[in-house]
């Protein structure tokens, strides 16, 4: 561990490489986490099936490329297809657990996650899939710092998606309806908002964001039917840290998590990378609990 730290000091370029690659993977986490925050905030559902939606988005792009389409077309197409999938999922299953106890929604979406994994295994096989975007890599500092173009695109897209989501929630009619429903569904209903539609749109929007994330993941990394969990865990972690109502915080938390995680993997060894993510989450929860307790004390 100490040698690894020494290595970071000795080769500053390596530090840059580790942090940059971490930020780029963090962007994908952020993309998946926007949707989770949205669903959590509006429907009050912890969407455990998040990672599987990402993986399905990846398969959509994989199938498109198999059919001879250029890989980057996969990003919008996956988002659109997954929007439809999200809508159907909501209308078929998820609407039953809105406004129910949070454990019921966790169980239901967990069940959905297993179902989707098995269906993906049946239809696409257990093979590991990847798509070559054919874009190559940028490299600086004598090749010590490398950034794959597709990760660069993922990064920019994630930021753009965050910005448009923010604008959409603030200014679009449907965005305002989503916020109104999140604040008080009953009042929204009285004011003529079709909350059922808003819920469905929110869930579908989440699936679309996941679809885009999955499409980028299959180009930058690999996917297989059981790959969802890392994405679910990371999105959950990001939302826990950033809260449900703040797109900017989600971006920051996603990028920060990616960079920290990669650094931890470098210094502690990859076997502790995931353990680090969980330890960090526990630490943040404890800290927030402590801070909230102090604030309560203050108010007394």
């Amino acid at each position: 561990m100490l040698d690894n730290l020494a290595l970071l000091v000795q080769f500053p370029a390596v530090t840059v490489d580790v942090v940059v690659n971490g930020l780029l993977i963090g962007a994908i986490f952020a993309l998946a986490a926007y949707g989770m925050a949205l669903v959590w905030g509006v429907l009050n559902i912890v969407n455990v099936v998040q990672g599987e939606l990402v993986v399905l988005g990846g398969y959509v792009t994989f199938l498109l490329v198999q059919a001879g389409m250029p890989p980057l077309i996969g990003v919008p197409v996956s988002a659109i297809v997954m929007f439809g999938v999200g809508w159907v999922l909501y209308r078929a299953i998820v609407f039953r657990v809105v406004d129910k106890d949070i454990f019921i929604s966790i169980l239901a979406t967990f069940g959905l996650a297993i179902l989707i994994q098995q269906l993906a295994n049946l239809s696409f096989g257990a093979d590991v899939r990847s798509v070559d975007a054919g874009l190559g890599s940028l490299h600086f500092l004598d090749g010590m710092v490398t950034v794959a173009w597709v990760k660069m695109i993922a990064f920019v897209l994630a930021l753009a998606a965050g910005a448009s989501l923010w604008l959409f929630l603030r200014h679009a009619r449907l965005g305002q309806a989503i916020r109104a429903t999140a604040q008080n569904p009953r009042a929204a209903r009285i004011l003529g908002i079709d909350t059922g539609r808003v819920y469905a749109a929110t869930y579908a929007l989440n699936a679309a964001l996941c679809g885009a994330a999955g499409s980028l993941a299959v180009m930058a990394w690999t996917i297989h039917p059981y790959m969802g969990l890392p994405y679910t865990v990371r999105s959950f972690m990001v939302v826990v840290v950033a809260g449900v109502g703040n797109v900017g915080a989600v971006v920051a938390a996603g990028l920060g998590l990616g960079a920290l995680e990669n650094l931890a993997g470098f210094v502690l060894g990859t076997e502790f990378q995931i353990a680090f993510v969980f330890a960090l989450m526990v630490a943040i929860l404890v800290w927030r609990h402590w801070r909230a307790a102090r604030r309560r004390e203050h108010l007394k």
Partner: peptide, 30 residues
């Protein structure tokens, strides 16, 4: 490598810095 491996850039950054003569990897298909 963790069984739920989805990225190995941390390991590869290390490899770039240390320039080994041989690299051995085993982690099933993924």
């Amino acid at each position: 490598l963790p069984p739920e491996l989805n990225d190995m850039s941390a390991t590869l950054s290390k490899v770039k810095a240390l320039r080994p003569d041989l690299m051995l990897i085993s982690g099933h298909d993924k």
